[in-house]
Structure formats: structure tokens, C-alpha cells
Design a protein around this nucleic acid. Structure first.
Lengths: 329, 329
DNA sequence: CACCGCCATGTTTACGTAAACATAGCCACC
DNA sequence: GGTGGCTATGTTTACGTAAACATGGCGGTG
């Protein structure tokens, strides 16, 4: 910067004013400075700027994995929205979903140059780790029930599940089986609870839950158990990838979908429209989740305290070809 | 830091030594300092540290989208490896795959606190934008043919495609159709070229290419055209998601897989094992790609110049149930 | 016992920037 | 024409850290 100032014949403060776009620099001076910058290939040192300003214009995102469609799409939406607001995104992967892993991530976070954090993680793991966020660090949590302590943004899991189950009951199915996500998952638990509640409200029997780990392979294993049960005519699967596995298992056992068994998924990943048959599923608006996370966090960064509470993003049931009325017995 | 030093009754330099883990601090002093840090909730200011050290310990990743499996898995591998090396990852999304979008990303990059950049992008777009990386900024490029100018890390696209096509020919198919990715994609082009070369070498007819945009929906459209052609007995699809669409199209047209038509994909995404039928596909080692990117970049950051040239990560053909010998006529 | 050298710690300084304050020149108005 | 205020620019300072250099005390060795 000093070099630029010398070459342009002005003070470094004037260079600073030009570089930050401050007003009060006359056009002719501005041009001289810009020319000097170009000639010397000057670019501002963001570390010095951050040190001076006390802010990094960067948001940290803590997560376990990008492998699930939901996470990677949420992160993409966050990154896009943050860029729009002039913020960069720093990814903080948690090596393993263990206490040590989480603790490591938060330790790194302490030294990291971020103004706030978005946590995409089951909150019970946060609790188990009794980690302390650096005091005063703004946070927004996704996919969690921490609404009593942190601001939370989440898809309306319960309502999505209700739509799915009600749709199947409305088609005439006596009851609905459920392939859930891992028991530790908050989203999985929310979807399972809503499924159970709708059945109970309708006075229907509540069959046992099959569990998977979100992967198609685990869905396949659950699907094999369901396929062996002739009384099973309708299945609500907690995500699309497991639904893919369920479809395959049903197919291999000669159970036609939707002729003999109806299947509903959750997420509406782009591939779901190309499954065999195209999957009826609950659409999640990941982009909106990302957008609200960033807004919520920036409000905290710029304004005062974040108010705990959960902000729900609505879902829509997408009707495709994997559901139908049960075959008349 | 000064507060910690005062409370611990030492100089700030000693606090610095403790916080950076430098040797030459006696254990008793170290404990006193650590206690003081804890009591005051001290955490080092990374901006000041970066300013002093002249490095950010951060890697920038420039990409268009996380929506494709390949990108998100590569990014995840990069993030994991970088964390292992003590580096953070900053995501720089390119708003739109246009010149303006790319230019915007690189402008932001100029002001960003990164020690090097990994570009996951078709290089022809870089060229079209005549952008200049800040001079001296270390770069590694993925998924590109820029090997003459930058260090490139990439999956061995050509060899993967060769394995796929040769497998189909070895099964006895007279020729192999191809559903390629978008013409602008370097990976897509490489896979198509290898497909063409294997057929030509074997003296087989080279049928016209069908094109998609990597999505299952586009694969479905291509698949409908193929299904209508009774002479088509084997298809090499440029990625698994499009293969999913092809499978659906073939199924809807009553063409059995692999009985009447064999299909091979590319990527080996986790879901591919659960397709109907489970997909034979070329396995890409995204984790290895990510690892080599980070190493290549850190070599540049720590050492001297990056040597242009392409580093290829091998692929493996995974045999599943979507390929078989052609039905005897 | 004196001197040397080493180890633990302290002091000084600079990294690049922007806010706060200072100054000088100009114009308008009475 | 003098005074007041405004605008464009310059000067000073501090942000928090770690490298470089300085100091002092202690043990070992001749």
C-alpha cells in the first residue's frame, strides 16, 4: 500500500479510501491511485484488514459429511447466499461423529477466522461433547432440536411426514410401515414421530419401525424384511436414497410398486423422478433453508442477540408413480 | 494476550510461545499461562497471526456447484485432507458458469484470505474469461486439460471409459452406444473419445453419440431414443445418474437389462449398487483426487513452483448386474 | 573459583490496514 | 474582506501477534 501511495504521490490513507470505495476522494486522484494499484499489482491484505476491522466477513460451516444430498445442497445454498452478502464460507468438517471429532472441530473453530457459525449437526452430539462455543460467537443450527438455546432453521420434518402418511391413508391403505433413519438423528426421529401420530390419530395399528442409516444399501436391507410381509401395502421411507433400496428389494421379491405396495420417500432429490417407478416424495426446500441460515446469522453478526427458536421451512408432497390404492383383496 | 500475560505474571511473548506450542517454556510456567488463558477465555486472533506470519493456512476452492456427486465428494475429500494438514477450506462458488460469474469469483478471490486455490472447473471457461490469478498464487486444477499450464489432478477418465467399453465388447456385443455428458465438459469429452477409440481400434462401427447434462432426467430422454432402436444392445453412459435415467427408459420400453441391453455407468456413486438392476460402473476414487490436490497445492505453498502436468488417479470397473452377453439372435 | 555457554524469559519491533484526528485550501455569505 | 464551514487530503495511532534480539541466572568445566 505504501508503494502505491508513493507511486501515486498521495498518502496511504488516500489509497485506503480508494480501495474501500470511501467517498470524499476526487475523481482525478482516484484515477491516479487506481492506475498505480494496477501497475504494482496491488491487492489489499485481508489479514490486516480483518485485524483492523475486527471482522472477517467469513462464516464457518460445521458438518459431518457432504455425502448426503441434503447436506451438500444446504451447504451450496449457504455458500451462494453468503457470497451474495459479501461473505465467504469456511468448511469445518468433523472428522468422525464422535465426541473427539466434534471437539476437534470446535477447537479448530476457536482459532478460525469466522464471524459466526452454522452447525449442520445433531445437537445431542453437541451436548454430549459439552463444548463451549466461544462466548459471543453467533450461531445458527440446522437439523436439530436445540430451539430452546439456539436459533434453529429446519425443514418442517413433521408436516412433511404427515403429508406423506395421510396421502397413503387417503388412498385406502389400512396402515403404513416406516423405514426410519438412524435413531440418533433428530430429523429421523421427527419423521418417525409424525408417522406414528398420524396413524394413532386415525385409529390405525402402529407397526414396528425398520431402521436404516440413510443409505440405499440399508434401505435395501429394510426393504427385504418388508417384502417378506404380505400384509405390507404401504411404506413411508425417511429419505429417497433408502427408498431406492426399498424399491429394489420389493422388485426382487416380485412385489409390484405401486400395484401391490405403495412407497413414499423424503427429500425429493433430483434422481427420485427417475426411479423405477418415479418416486412420490416429500420435497424439501434446501435452498430456502440455506438462505434463512445466512440471514439469521447475519442478523446476529450485525445486530444483537440471536433469539432461540425454530424457524420451519415448509415442505410439499410431490405426487409421482410409486403410490396407488391398495389392490382390492 | 496482554491480559493473559498480566494475569500469569509473564511477558506476552511467553504467552505467544505457549499458544504456538514453541519449546523452551518450562512446564510450571506453561501451566500458569494455560490457566490464565482458560480463566480469561483467551483465543488467539487469527487475523493478527495471519498478518504476522504472512500466511492464512487456508485453501480456496472454486467451483460451480456441489450438486453433482463428483464435486461434492471431491470437496469433502479436500476438506478432510486439508483439515489433517492444519488448513481450512474456503468455498468460492461461481454464481453462474458464465464469464461474469467466473470473473466475479476470481475478483473475490483476490481479496480473500487464501494461500492457494483449487479450481474444480472446465478450463475452457477460465480461458474464455482471460482472468489472471493473482501472480504467485499457487493453483491446482481438477477436471481440466490445463496440464500444459497448471498442475492438474484428475481421474483417469480415458482408462475408465476404455475398461467399460472393452468389457462390453468382451461380452460379445457388436458395438456400444454412448450417452455422453455436455459437450463443454472436459471429462465428458475424454470419456467419449476413449469410447470412440476403443471401437475404432476393434474395427467396430462407431454409432452417433447421445448427449445429456449429467442429470437423470437427461439420461431418461437419451434412453428413450436408444430404447427405440432394436439394434442397440450395449450402452456406455458417462455417469451413473444419467444411467439411472437410461435404465428407466429401457424398462418403460420393455427392454430388459441386462437380458436385451447391457448398461455401464461411470462414477460408482453409492446408490448405483441399488439401481434396478445394480449398475456395473467405473469406480472413481474421489478421495484420492482430493488428497492429491491438497498435497500438490501444499507442495507449492511450502516449496517452490508448481510443475504443470497432469496426475491421473486410476479407476476400476465394478462388475454388477447390468451387463451380460447379448441375446443370441 | 572464575569463566563460558546455554536455557528460560523479557523487550523491541514490524506486519498492512483504516479510524480518528489534523490541516490546508476554497467558497460563500455578511 | 473577514469569518465560518466544508471538502480533499495528510498524519498519527492501534489492531494482536511472533520473529529477532537482549538479558540474566545457573550449572558445568578447567
Amino acid at each position: 500500500m505504501a508503494d502505491v501511495a508513493r507511486l501515486a504521490g498521495v498518502s496511504s490513507q488516500t489509497v485506503s479510501r480508494v480501495s474501500t470505495g470511501h467517498p470524499g476522494v476526487v475523481e482525478s486522484t482516484r484515477q491516479v491511485v487506481l492506475d498505480a494499484m494496477r501497475e504494482l499489482g496491488y491487492r489489499p491484505n485481508s489479514a490486516a484488514r480483518a485485524l483492523k476491522l475486527g471482522e472477517f466477513r467469513t462464516i464457518g460451516v460445521i458438518l459431518f459429511t457432504l455425502a448426503t444430498t441434503g447436506n451438500s445442497r444446504t451447504v451450496e445454498a449457504i455458500a451462494t447466499q453468503a457470497a451474495l452478502e459479501g461473505y465467504a464460507i469456511t468448511l469445518i468438517p468433523v472428522a468422525a461423529p464422535t465426541q473427539d471429532g466434534v471437539l476437534g472441530a470446535f477447537t479448530r473453530l476457536g482459532e478460525l477466522a469466522v464471524d459466526g457459525v452454522i452447525v449442520i449437526m445433531e445437537v445431542h452430539l453437541l451436548d454430549a461433547t459439552d463444548l463451549t462455543l466461544p462466548p459471543g460467537m453467533p450461531v445458527v443450527v440446522v437439523d436439530s432440536d436445540a430451539g430452546d438455546r439456539y436459533p434453529v432453521v429446519d425443514t418442517d420434518q413433521a408436516d412433511g411426514a404427515r403429508q406423506a402418511v395421510r396421502h397413503l391413508l387417503a388412498l385406502g391403505h389400512r396402515t403404513v410401515r416406516h423405514v426410519g433413519g438412524p435413531a440418533e438423528s433428530f430429523s429421523a426421529e421427527r419423521r418417525a414421530q409424525a408417522w406414528r401420530a398420524v396413524l394413532a390419530d386415525a385409529g390405525r395399528p402402529v407397526p414396528p419401525v425398520e431402521r436404516g442409516d440413510w443409505s440405499a444399501a440399508s434401505g435395501y436391507r429394510a426393504g427385504r424384511r418388508l417384502a417378506a410381509d404380505p400384509s405390507c401395502t404401504a411404506v413411508f421411507v425417511a429419505n429417497d436414497q433408502m427408498a431406492l433400496g426399498v424399491l429394489r428389494a420389493l422388485h426382487e421379491h416380485g412385489r409390484r410398486v405401486p400395484g401391490q405396495v405403495s412407497v413414499v420417500g423424503f427429500d425429493d432429490i433430483p434422481d427420485a423422478a427417475s426411479y423405477l417407478p418415479p418416486l412420490t416424495t416429500v420435497h424439501q426446500d434446501f435452498a430456502e433453508v440455506g438462505r434463512r441460515c445466512v440471514h439469521g446469522l447475519l442478523d446476529q453478526i450485525r445486530g444483537e442477540r440471536g433469539t432461540p427458536g425454530t424457524e420451519l421451512v415448509p415442505t410439499v408432497l410431490i405426487h409421482r408413480s410409486s403410490t396407488a390404492a391398495p389392490a382390492s383383496p
